[in-house]
Design a protein around this nucleic acid. Structure first.
Lengths: 217, 217
DNA sequence: TAGATTGTTAATCGATTAACAATC
DNA sequence: TAGATTGTTAATCGATTAACAATC
Protein backbone atom coordinates (compact mmCIF):
# COMPACT_ATOMS: atom_id res chain seq x y z
CA UNK A 1 0.00 0.00 0.00
CA UNK A 2 2.28 2.83 1.23
CA UNK A 3 1.34 6.46 1.64
CA UNK A 4 -2.31 7.62 1.61
CA UNK A 5 -3.12 9.86 4.53
CA UNK A 6 -2.79 7.80 7.69
CA UNK A 7 -5.64 8.06 10.18
CA UNK A 8 -5.04 8.94 13.79
CA UNK A 9 -6.47 5.60 14.88
CA UNK A 10 -3.69 3.83 13.00
CA UNK A 11 -0.98 6.04 14.48
CA UNK A 12 -2.29 5.47 17.97
CA UNK A 13 -2.02 1.72 17.56
CA UNK A 14 1.62 1.79 16.50
CA UNK A 15 3.00 2.45 20.00
CA UNK A 16 0.92 -0.44 21.28
CA UNK A 17 2.40 -2.75 18.66
CA UNK A 18 5.85 -1.45 19.53
CA UNK A 19 5.40 -2.09 23.22
CA UNK A 20 4.43 -5.71 22.69
CA UNK A 21 7.14 -6.27 20.10
CA UNK A 22 9.70 -5.04 22.59
CA UNK A 23 8.40 -7.58 25.05
CA UNK A 24 8.70 -10.34 22.46
CA UNK A 25 12.22 -9.19 21.71
CA UNK A 26 13.16 -9.41 25.37
CA UNK A 27 11.79 -12.92 25.38
CA UNK A 28 13.98 -13.59 22.32
CA UNK A 29 11.07 -14.43 20.09
CA UNK A 30 12.22 -13.81 16.55
CA UNK A 31 9.00 -13.85 14.56
CA UNK A 32 5.36 -13.02 15.11
CA UNK A 33 2.21 -13.28 12.98
CA UNK A 34 -0.63 -10.77 12.77
CA UNK A 35 -2.75 -13.53 14.25
CA UNK A 36 -0.65 -13.71 17.41
CA UNK A 37 -0.39 -9.94 17.68
CA UNK A 38 -4.13 -9.60 17.32
CA UNK A 39 -4.82 -12.15 19.99
CA UNK A 40 -2.52 -10.48 22.49
CA UNK A 41 -3.66 -6.94 21.75
CA UNK A 42 -7.36 -7.62 21.23
CA UNK A 43 -7.30 -6.46 17.63
CA UNK A 44 -8.35 -7.93 14.33
CA UNK A 45 -5.34 -9.47 12.53
CA UNK A 46 -6.44 -7.95 9.22
CA UNK A 47 -6.39 -4.56 10.84
CA UNK A 48 -2.87 -5.05 12.08
CA UNK A 49 -1.66 -6.15 8.64
CA UNK A 50 -3.38 -3.20 7.06
CA UNK A 51 -1.94 -0.75 9.60
CA UNK A 52 1.57 -1.95 8.95
CA UNK A 53 1.12 -2.13 5.20
CA UNK A 54 0.44 1.62 5.12
CA UNK A 55 4.12 2.10 5.80
CA UNK A 56 5.75 -0.70 3.85
CA UNK A 57 5.96 -4.43 3.25
CA UNK A 58 7.36 -5.45 6.59
CA UNK A 59 6.18 -9.05 6.72
CA UNK A 60 6.95 -12.25 4.88
CA UNK A 61 4.16 -14.34 3.45
CA UNK A 62 3.90 -17.72 5.11
CA UNK A 63 6.22 -16.57 7.90
CA UNK A 64 5.01 -13.43 9.65
CA UNK A 65 6.97 -10.42 10.88
CA UNK A 66 10.59 -10.42 11.99
CA UNK A 67 10.44 -8.92 15.47
CA UNK A 68 13.66 -6.85 15.56
CA UNK A 69 13.08 -5.61 12.02
CA UNK A 70 9.51 -4.53 12.75
CA UNK A 71 10.62 -2.79 15.94
CA UNK A 72 13.16 -0.84 13.94
CA UNK A 73 10.58 0.11 11.34
CA UNK A 74 7.93 1.26 13.81
CA UNK A 75 10.48 3.23 15.78
CA UNK A 76 11.44 4.98 12.58
CA UNK A 77 7.84 5.70 11.62
CA UNK A 78 7.16 7.20 15.05
CA UNK A 79 10.44 9.14 14.88
CA UNK A 80 11.57 7.36 18.02
CA UNK A 81 14.89 6.53 16.36
CA UNK A 82 16.17 10.07 16.91
CA UNK A 83 16.71 12.08 20.09
CA UNK A 84 13.47 13.77 21.15
CA UNK A 85 13.47 16.15 24.06
CA UNK A 86 10.25 16.76 25.94
CA UNK A 87 9.39 19.67 28.24
CA UNK A 88 7.15 19.27 31.25
CA UNK A 89 5.24 22.37 32.34
CA UNK A 90 3.85 22.13 35.85
CA UNK A 91 5.94 20.61 38.63
CA UNK A 92 3.05 19.61 40.88
CA UNK A 93 2.28 16.07 41.97
CA UNK A 94 1.26 14.95 38.52
CA UNK A 95 4.22 16.51 36.77
CA UNK A 96 6.48 14.96 39.36
CA UNK A 97 4.91 11.57 38.76
CA UNK A 98 5.26 11.75 34.99
CA UNK A 99 8.90 12.77 35.22
CA UNK A 100 9.59 9.27 36.54
CA UNK A 101 8.55 7.63 33.32
CA UNK A 102 11.56 8.43 31.19
CA UNK A 103 12.50 4.78 31.31
CA UNK A 104 9.28 3.80 29.55
CA UNK A 105 9.69 6.38 26.83
CA UNK A 106 12.01 4.50 24.48
CA UNK A 107 15.58 5.65 25.15
CA UNK A 108 15.55 8.49 22.59
CA UNK A 109 12.48 10.28 23.96
CA UNK A 110 13.17 12.03 27.20
CA UNK A 111 11.84 14.68 29.53
CA UNK A 112 14.75 17.12 29.70
CA UNK A 113 13.24 20.25 31.22
CA UNK A 114 10.65 21.07 33.90
CA UNK A 115 8.98 24.43 34.44
CA UNK A 116 6.74 25.93 37.08
CA UNK A 117 5.38 29.41 37.67
CA UNK A 118 5.33 29.01 41.43
CA UNK A 119 8.51 30.65 42.71
CA UNK A 120 9.18 28.35 45.70
CA UNK A 121 9.13 25.40 43.30
CA UNK A 122 11.77 26.91 41.06
CA UNK A 123 15.24 25.61 41.78
CA UNK A 124 14.00 22.39 43.36
CA UNK A 125 15.40 19.20 41.94
CA UNK A 126 13.09 16.58 40.45
CA UNK A 127 14.81 13.45 39.22
CA UNK A 128 18.05 15.30 38.56
CA UNK A 129 16.26 18.10 36.69
CA UNK A 130 16.11 21.56 38.23
CA UNK A 131 12.68 23.19 38.05
CA UNK A 132 12.99 26.32 35.91
CA UNK A 133 10.88 29.48 36.00
CA UNK A 134 8.35 30.04 33.23
CA UNK A 135 10.43 32.96 32.00
CA UNK A 136 13.02 30.49 30.73
CA UNK A 137 10.50 28.41 28.79
CA UNK A 138 11.17 29.95 25.39
CA UNK A 139 14.92 30.05 25.62
CA UNK A 140 15.26 26.51 26.96
CA UNK A 141 12.93 25.11 24.33
CA UNK A 142 15.01 26.69 21.63
CA UNK A 143 18.37 25.76 23.16
CA UNK A 144 17.43 22.14 23.73
CA UNK A 145 15.49 21.81 20.49
CA UNK A 146 12.42 20.66 22.43
CA UNK A 147 9.52 19.84 20.13
CA UNK A 148 6.96 18.20 22.44
CA UNK A 149 5.56 19.52 25.72
CA UNK A 150 3.44 18.04 28.49
CA UNK A 151 1.06 20.38 30.30
CA UNK A 152 0.36 19.48 33.93
CA UNK A 153 -0.62 22.90 35.27
CA UNK A 154 -4.06 23.70 36.76
CA UNK A 155 -6.86 24.27 34.28
CA UNK A 156 -6.90 28.07 34.62
CA UNK A 157 -3.24 28.31 33.59
CA UNK A 158 -3.34 25.77 30.78
CA UNK A 159 -4.36 28.02 27.89
CA UNK A 160 -1.72 30.61 28.79
CA UNK A 161 0.94 27.93 28.95
CA UNK A 162 -0.20 26.55 25.61
CA UNK A 163 0.04 29.99 24.03
CA UNK A 164 3.57 30.45 25.33
CA UNK A 165 4.56 27.00 24.11
CA UNK A 166 3.22 27.73 20.66
CA UNK A 167 5.11 31.03 20.54
CA UNK A 168 8.25 29.17 21.50
CA UNK A 169 7.88 26.89 18.51
CA UNK A 170 6.60 23.70 20.13
CA UNK A 171 5.01 21.26 17.65
CA UNK A 172 2.95 18.93 19.82
CA UNK A 173 1.33 19.05 23.25
CA UNK A 174 0.06 16.37 25.60
CA UNK A 175 -2.47 18.14 27.80
CA UNK A 176 -3.44 16.81 31.21
CA UNK A 177 -5.44 19.89 32.21
CA UNK A 178 -9.23 19.52 31.97
CA UNK A 179 -9.75 22.14 29.24
CA UNK A 180 -9.98 22.18 25.47
CA UNK A 181 -6.93 24.13 24.35
CA UNK A 182 -7.17 26.48 21.40
CA UNK A 183 -4.07 26.40 19.23
CA UNK A 184 -3.14 26.87 15.58
CA UNK A 185 -4.09 23.91 13.43
CA UNK A 186 -0.48 22.92 12.78
CA UNK A 187 0.01 22.15 16.48
CA UNK A 188 -0.88 18.62 17.47
CA UNK A 189 -2.75 18.26 20.76
CA UNK A 190 -3.72 15.14 22.65
CA UNK A 191 -6.03 15.37 25.62
CA UNK A 192 -5.01 13.17 28.54
CA UNK A 193 -7.60 14.16 31.08
CA UNK A 194 -8.29 11.27 33.40
CA UNK A 195 -11.33 12.89 35.03
CA UNK A 196 -13.33 12.67 31.79
CA UNK A 197 -12.06 9.11 31.38
CA UNK A 198 -13.40 8.18 34.80
CA UNK A 199 -16.68 9.92 34.24
CA UNK A 200 -17.33 8.10 31.00
CA UNK A 201 -16.55 4.81 32.77
CA UNK A 202 -19.36 5.49 35.22
CA UNK A 203 -21.81 5.29 32.33
CA UNK A 204 -21.11 1.61 31.92
CA UNK A 205 -21.90 0.62 35.50
CA UNK A 206 -24.81 -1.72 35.86
CA UNK A 207 -28.00 0.08 36.66
CA UNK A 208 -29.93 -0.26 39.88
CA UNK A 209 -27.17 -1.08 42.31
CA UNK A 210 -26.77 1.95 44.51
CA UNK A 211 -30.17 3.12 43.39
CA UNK A 212 -33.38 2.00 44.98
CA UNK A 213 -36.58 2.73 43.13
CA UNK A 214 -38.15 2.43 39.66
CA UNK A 215 -35.58 3.18 36.95
CA UNK A 216 -36.51 0.81 34.18
CA UNK A 217 -34.54 0.15 30.95
CA UNK B 1 -34.38 9.39 19.11
CA UNK B 2 -33.82 7.64 22.49
CA UNK B 3 -32.30 4.23 23.04
CA UNK B 4 -30.37 2.43 20.27
CA UNK B 5 -27.01 1.17 21.46
CA UNK B 6 -24.88 4.20 22.26
CA UNK B 7 -21.36 4.18 20.86
CA UNK B 8 -18.36 4.69 23.08
CA UNK B 9 -17.44 7.84 21.15
CA UNK B 10 -20.73 9.41 22.23
CA UNK B 11 -20.27 8.43 25.87
CA UNK B 12 -16.76 9.87 25.89
CA UNK B 13 -18.01 13.23 24.73
CA UNK B 14 -20.62 13.57 27.47
CA UNK B 15 -18.13 14.43 30.24
CA UNK B 16 -16.64 17.07 27.97
CA UNK B 17 -20.05 18.63 27.47
CA UNK B 18 -20.65 18.45 31.19
CA UNK B 19 -17.41 20.18 32.02
CA UNK B 20 -18.16 23.11 29.77
CA UNK B 21 -21.76 23.32 30.92
CA UNK B 22 -20.55 23.55 34.50
CA UNK B 23 -18.36 26.44 33.48
CA UNK B 24 -21.30 28.18 31.82
CA UNK B 25 -23.34 27.58 34.93
CA UNK B 26 -20.69 29.21 37.09
CA UNK B 27 -20.77 32.18 34.76
CA UNK B 28 -24.55 32.22 35.24
CA UNK B 29 -25.28 31.62 31.58
CA UNK B 30 -28.74 30.12 31.40
CA UNK B 31 -28.95 28.81 27.86
CA UNK B 32 -26.61 27.48 25.21
CA UNK B 33 -27.02 26.37 21.60
CA UNK B 34 -25.37 23.40 19.90
CA UNK B 35 -23.67 26.00 17.73
CA UNK B 36 -21.97 27.65 20.70
CA UNK B 37 -21.09 24.33 22.28
CA UNK B 38 -19.58 23.13 19.03
CA UNK B 39 -17.48 26.21 18.63
CA UNK B 40 -16.07 25.99 22.12
CA UNK B 41 -15.45 22.26 22.04
CA UNK B 42 -14.29 21.94 18.43
CA UNK B 43 -17.17 19.68 17.49
CA UNK B 44 -19.83 19.72 14.82
CA UNK B 45 -23.11 21.14 16.20
CA UNK B 46 -25.12 18.42 14.47
CA UNK B 47 -23.04 15.85 16.27
CA UNK B 48 -23.74 17.45 19.62
CA UNK B 49 -27.47 17.58 18.96
CA UNK B 50 -27.43 13.98 17.87
CA UNK B 51 -25.40 12.86 20.89
CA UNK B 52 -27.85 14.48 23.27
CA UNK B 53 -30.91 13.30 21.36
CA UNK B 54 -29.90 9.69 21.99
CA UNK B 55 -30.92 10.25 25.59
CA UNK B 56 -33.93 12.49 25.31
CA UNK B 57 -35.31 15.77 24.00
CA UNK B 58 -33.32 18.11 26.16
CA UNK B 59 -33.40 21.22 23.99
CA UNK B 60 -36.01 23.71 22.87
CA UNK B 61 -36.37 24.58 19.23
CA UNK B 62 -35.49 28.16 18.51
CA UNK B 63 -33.95 28.52 21.98
CA UNK B 64 -31.23 25.99 22.66
CA UNK B 65 -30.47 24.04 25.82
CA UNK B 66 -31.18 25.13 29.36
CA UNK B 67 -27.82 24.90 31.10
CA UNK B 68 -28.82 23.69 34.58
CA UNK B 69 -31.34 21.24 33.13
CA UNK B 70 -28.82 19.77 30.70
CA UNK B 71 -26.23 19.46 33.47
CA UNK B 72 -28.74 17.53 35.53
CA UNK B 73 -29.58 15.26 32.63
CA UNK B 74 -25.99 14.47 31.67
CA UNK B 75 -25.07 13.84 35.28
CA UNK B 76 -27.90 11.37 35.47
CA UNK B 77 -26.91 9.63 32.25
CA UNK B 78 -23.34 9.27 33.48
CA UNK B 79 -24.61 8.11 36.88
CA UNK B 80 -22.80 11.02 38.48
CA UNK B 81 -25.94 11.91 40.43
CA UNK B 82 -25.38 9.10 42.89
CA UNK B 83 -22.47 8.44 45.27
CA UNK B 84 -19.72 6.55 43.45
CA UNK B 85 -16.70 5.33 45.37
CA UNK B 86 -13.46 4.71 43.54
CA UNK B 87 -10.48 2.63 44.65
CA UNK B 88 -6.93 3.54 43.76
CA UNK B 89 -4.47 0.67 43.57
CA UNK B 90 -0.84 1.77 43.65
CA UNK B 91 0.26 4.52 46.01
CA UNK B 92 3.34 5.59 44.08
CA UNK B 93 3.90 9.04 42.67
CA UNK B 94 1.18 8.72 40.07
CA UNK B 95 -1.39 7.32 42.47
CA UNK B 96 -0.54 10.07 44.89
CA UNK B 97 -1.02 12.69 42.18
CA UNK B 98 -4.38 11.32 41.09
CA UNK B 99 -5.68 11.22 44.64
CA UNK B 100 -5.61 15.02 44.58
CA UNK B 101 -8.21 15.22 41.88
CA UNK B 102 -11.28 14.40 43.92
CA UNK B 103 -12.37 18.00 43.55
CA UNK B 104 -12.56 17.64 39.77
CA UNK B 105 -14.56 14.46 39.95
CA UNK B 106 -18.06 15.89 40.42
CA UNK B 107 -18.91 15.78 44.10
CA UNK B 108 -20.51 12.32 44.03
CA UNK B 109 -17.53 10.48 42.52
CA UNK B 110 -14.71 10.11 44.95
CA UNK B 111 -11.55 8.16 45.60
CA UNK B 112 -12.25 6.57 48.96
CA UNK B 113 -9.59 3.89 49.31
CA UNK B 114 -5.93 3.49 48.40
CA UNK B 115 -3.98 0.23 48.30
CA UNK B 116 -0.36 -0.73 47.89
CA UNK B 117 1.51 -4.03 48.09
CA UNK B 118 4.68 -2.42 49.38
CA UNK B 119 4.64 -2.85 53.15
CA UNK B 120 6.40 0.40 54.13
CA UNK B 121 3.75 2.31 52.17
CA UNK B 122 0.93 0.71 54.07
CA UNK B 123 -0.36 2.87 56.89
CA UNK B 124 0.93 6.10 55.37
CA UNK B 125 -1.62 8.86 54.97
CA UNK B 126 -2.34 10.31 51.54
CA UNK B 127 -4.85 13.15 51.50
CA UNK B 128 -6.56 11.87 54.64
CA UNK B 129 -6.75 8.30 53.33
CA UNK B 130 -4.65 5.60 54.92
CA UNK B 131 -2.87 3.32 52.46
CA UNK B 132 -4.20 -0.20 52.93
CA UNK B 133 -2.49 -3.52 52.22
CA UNK B 134 -3.56 -5.48 49.15
CA UNK B 135 -5.00 -8.14 51.43
CA UNK B 136 -7.80 -5.76 52.35
CA UNK B 137 -8.74 -4.99 48.73
CA UNK B 138 -11.64 -7.41 48.50
CA UNK B 139 -13.18 -6.64 51.86
CA UNK B 140 -12.91 -2.87 51.49
CA UNK B 141 -14.37 -2.94 47.98
CA UNK B 142 -17.33 -4.87 49.25
CA UNK B 143 -17.79 -2.82 52.41
CA UNK B 144 -17.60 0.52 50.64
CA UNK B 145 -19.55 -0.66 47.61
CA UNK B 146 -16.68 0.41 45.35
CA UNK B 147 -17.47 -0.20 41.68
CA UNK B 148 -14.63 1.56 39.84
CA UNK B 149 -10.89 1.15 40.34
CA UNK B 150 -7.82 2.98 39.09
CA UNK B 151 -4.66 0.95 38.52
CA UNK B 152 -1.41 2.84 39.03
CA UNK B 153 0.91 -0.06 39.84
CA UNK B 154 3.95 -1.00 37.74
CA UNK B 155 3.25 -2.93 34.56
CA UNK B 156 4.34 -6.31 35.92
CA UNK B 157 1.80 -6.13 38.75
CA UNK B 158 -1.08 -4.75 36.74
CA UNK B 159 -2.62 -7.98 35.48
CA UNK B 160 -2.55 -9.52 38.97
CA UNK B 161 -4.22 -6.48 40.42
CA UNK B 162 -6.84 -6.54 37.69
CA UNK B 163 -7.60 -10.19 38.42
CA UNK B 164 -8.03 -9.44 42.11
CA UNK B 165 -10.26 -6.48 41.35
CA UNK B 166 -12.44 -8.58 39.11
CA UNK B 167 -12.75 -11.26 41.79
CA UNK B 168 -13.79 -8.57 44.24
CA UNK B 169 -16.65 -7.56 41.98
CA UNK B 170 -15.31 -4.34 40.46
CA UNK B 171 -17.20 -3.25 37.32
CA UNK B 172 -14.85 -0.80 35.62
CA UNK B 173 -11.11 -0.11 35.58
CA UNK B 174 -9.07 2.86 34.51
CA UNK B 175 -5.63 1.45 33.78
CA UNK B 176 -2.51 3.62 33.82
CA UNK B 177 -0.10 0.70 33.51
CA UNK B 178 1.38 0.17 30.05
CA UNK B 179 -0.17 -3.24 29.40
CA UNK B 180 -3.29 -4.59 27.75
CA UNK B 181 -5.28 -6.13 30.60
CA UNK B 182 -7.22 -9.33 30.04
CA UNK B 183 -10.55 -9.34 31.84
CA UNK B 184 -14.02 -10.79 31.38
CA UNK B 185 -16.05 -8.97 28.75
CA UNK B 186 -18.48 -7.53 31.27
CA UNK B 187 -15.68 -5.49 32.87
CA UNK B 188 -15.15 -2.09 31.30
CA UNK B 189 -11.53 -1.06 30.86
CA UNK B 190 -10.08 2.23 29.71
CA UNK B 191 -6.40 2.54 28.94
CA UNK B 192 -4.84 5.75 30.22
CA UNK B 193 -1.25 5.14 29.31
CA UNK B 194 0.48 8.44 28.64
CA UNK B 195 3.63 6.85 27.20
CA UNK B 196 1.75 5.57 24.15
CA UNK B 197 0.06 8.95 23.89
CA UNK B 198 3.41 10.68 23.76
CA UNK B 199 4.84 8.22 21.29
CA UNK B 200 1.99 8.69 18.87
CA UNK B 201 2.46 12.45 19.14
CA UNK B 202 6.01 12.06 17.89
CA UNK B 203 4.65 10.78 14.59
CA UNK B 204 3.20 14.18 13.81
CA UNK B 205 6.44 16.11 14.20
CA UNK B 206 7.63 17.79 11.05
CA UNK B 207 10.19 15.74 9.23
CA UNK B 208 13.79 16.71 8.74
CA UNK B 209 14.38 18.91 11.75
CA UNK B 210 16.72 17.00 14.01
CA UNK B 211 17.67 14.83 11.09
CA UNK B 212 20.37 15.74 8.63
CA UNK B 213 20.46 13.78 5.40
CA UNK B 214 18.18 12.59 2.60
CA UNK B 215 14.83 11.44 4.04
CA UNK B 216 12.38 12.49 1.39
CA UNK B 217 8.56 12.45 1.64
C1' DT C 1 -44.56 37.26 11.98
C1' DA C 2 -39.39 36.49 11.27
C1' DG C 3 -35.36 34.44 13.13
C1' DA C 4 -33.28 30.87 15.59
C1' DT C 5 -32.46 26.39 16.67
C1' DT C 6 -33.86 21.81 17.66
C1' DG C 7 -34.45 16.67 16.52
C1' DT C 8 -34.07 13.55 12.83
C1' DT C 9 -33.55 11.60 8.28
C1' DA C 10 -30.65 10.98 4.51
C1' DA C 11 -26.01 11.44 2.48
C1' DT C 12 -21.32 11.09 3.11
C1' DC C 13 -17.33 9.74 4.74
C1' DG C 14 -14.09 6.74 6.97
C1' DA C 15 -12.66 2.74 9.46
C1' DT C 16 -12.94 -2.18 10.25
C1' DT C 17 -13.35 -6.77 8.67
C1' DA C 18 -13.65 -10.62 5.34
C1' DA C 19 -11.83 -12.93 1.68
C1' DC C 20 -8.35 -14.47 -1.26
C1' DA C 21 -4.52 -14.52 -4.64
C1' DA C 22 0.35 -14.40 -4.09
C1' DT C 23 4.18 -16.55 -2.10
C1' DC C 24 7.32 -18.05 1.47
C1' DT D 1 4.36 -30.10 -2.26
C1' DA D 2 1.20 -28.59 1.68
C1' DG D 3 0.49 -25.23 5.19
C1' DA D 4 0.90 -20.70 6.77
C1' DT D 5 0.52 -16.03 6.38
C1' DT D 6 1.08 -11.79 4.08
C1' DG D 7 -0.69 -7.56 1.39
C1' DT D 8 -4.67 -5.84 -0.75
C1' DT D 9 -9.24 -5.49 -2.71
C1' DA D 10 -13.97 -5.57 -1.87
C1' DA D 11 -17.78 -5.70 1.48
C1' DT D 12 -19.50 -4.19 5.65
C1' DC D 13 -20.24 -1.58 9.27
C1' DG D 14 -20.46 2.62 11.91
C1' DA D 15 -19.79 7.40 12.76
C1' DT D 16 -20.01 12.14 11.20
C1' DT D 17 -22.12 15.76 8.70
C1' DA D 18 -25.64 18.13 5.89
C1' DA D 19 -30.11 19.40 5.26
C1' DC D 20 -34.57 20.53 6.62
C1' DA D 21 -39.29 20.27 8.58
C1' DA D 22 -41.07 21.36 13.04
C1' DT D 23 -41.56 24.78 16.37
C1' DC D 24 -40.26 27.98 19.96
Amino acid sequence: MKSDKISEAVVRRLPVYLRFLNELHTREIATVSSQELGQKLDLNPAQIRKDLAYFGDFGRKGIGYDVPYLIEKIRHILKLDQPLNVALVGAGNLGHALSNYNAYLQDTMKITAIFDSYKPKVGQKINSLVVQPMEELGSTIREQGIRIAIITVPEFEAQNVADTLVESGIEAILNFAPVILKTPSNIRIHAADFTTDLQSLAYYLQDGKEESEHEKQ
